[in-house]
């Protein structure tokens, strides 16, 4: 069963991301939710999701560091990481690429584009 992890410390954004991606559940995808970077990394190590959407600015561990830790672990080579950040901070895009993120999306996100991205990374549709 494919798994997709969503990590964002902002509960409203988590709700929005979940509500955007929940149709994936109809395709058998399991959605995992976490509220900080350290918990997200632990969950990724435990559940080994196919895709992880990570907010950049999170308590305990930011999205870059989670991504770098995932990339440093050969067992997690299959995990595709998408970093999410506020609109206007596109300058950080390079940093996202440097730590091995597959994609870099800005918030407010385009719901349709986000869902399409998730489907593509999961090899659906």
């Amino acid at each position: 069963m494919p798994k997709l992890l969503i990590a964002d410390d902002e509960p409203h954004i988590r709700t929005l991301l979940q509500q955007t991606l929940e149709t994936l559940e109809d395709d058998g995808v399991e959605l995992l939710m976490e509220a900080d970077g350290a918990a997200a990394l632990e969950r990724i190590r435990r559940e080994r999701p196919d895709v992880a959407f990570l907010d950049v600015m999170m308590p305990r561990m930011n999205g870059y560091d989670v991504c770098a830790a995932v990339r440093a672990d050969p067992d997690l080579a299959h995990v595709r990481v998408v970093l999410l950040t506020a609109k206007g901070q596109e300058a950080d895009r390079q940093r996202g690429a440097d730590v091995g993120a597959h994609l870099y999306l800005t918030k407010p996100f385009d719901p349709d584009a986000l869902l399409e991205t998730a489907e593509r990374l999961l090899g659906l549709g």
Partner: peptide
């Protein structure tokens, strides 16, 4: 969910 749906609609408009 209705609130979130409304927000997503705004997101969609913005984009």
């Amino acid at each position: 969910r209705a609130m979130a749906g409304e927000t997503l609609e705004r997101y969609r408009e913005i984009h």
